[in-house]
Design a binder for these strands. Sequence first.
DNA 1: TACGAATTTGACTTTTACGTAACTCGTGGC
DNA 2: GCCACGAGTTACGTAAAAGTCAAATTCGTA
Lengths: 133, 133
Amino acid sequence: MREHYTITELTREFGISTRTIRFYEDEGLIHPIRRGRTRLFRPSDRNLLKNILRGKRLGFAISEIREIVQMYREPPGEAGQLRAILRKVADRRGELEQKRRDIDDMLGELEAAEEACLTRMAELGVGQTSRSG
Amino acid sequence: MREHYTITELTREFGISTRTIRFYEDEGLIHPIRRGRTRLFRPSDRNLLKNILRGKRLGFAISEIREIVQMYREPPGEAGQLRAILRKVADRRGELEQKRRDIDDMLGELEAAEEACLTRMAELGVGQTSRSG
DNA sequence: TACGAATTTGACTTTTACGTAACTCGTGGC
DNA sequence: GCCACGAGTTACGTAAAAGTCAAATTCGTA
């Protein structure tokens, strides 16, 4: 595990721009340390970025991702705040389960579409090159 | 199964605005029939809308959703187009599987966060009201 | 057929998530 | 000391996805 990563290393690894990473810092999602003015990303920062991009792929907004990654930090010492986090965790879990149902439904539709295409090709007497599923 | 739905019925059912539905029509995602100038939504339109909103929840852009719902239509009669659809189906399936991995990873992180909170509460000697998982 | 509620269309505005341009700073090599 | 070069900052721009508002229709119905 490396000590630090530069911003451009992370842009290459994750296929995003420096602007994007700096934007996430401006938005308070990530807090790299500095050597002079230059950002240095620790492995934990890199991991956090990975989490952020996961959230993006799942369609969460920046404001939501901010809330989510805040839940991953050291739990606070106050009971009310802990309960608030637990509630949010439960909410997000519900959302994710909805998304999973959405994925399954969508996969079902795709399969139906594929079947329809294959049937149509058979009708036309067209040979297929390969079959994925 | 009803014959037709009005626009406001669908807005209530799905929790979206009339502007949104009309926007989707402008974007060519949906094509309700008309009685005069008034839109009438068939059950198939309602189902299509459901598909569109699924895509939205999963973070697909309108342009992607347009492509996706086009794949659900009657397959064309030309072999090249059929093969193109099959390729797109395979691509989307790959994306959905990535999203599913993202969901599982994120659920894992949430679980870890929950554990950390519960541990912290135990340390503090705080009673929990309930446990979801 | 007159009225109010719902609908349509069109234009303009807003928010989000960055992109782009223009410039400065700091550091290593010669 | 100068230069190249990557990184930083500031400010403005923009595309997508609606929200908002106004004006014109249209519909059910009394």
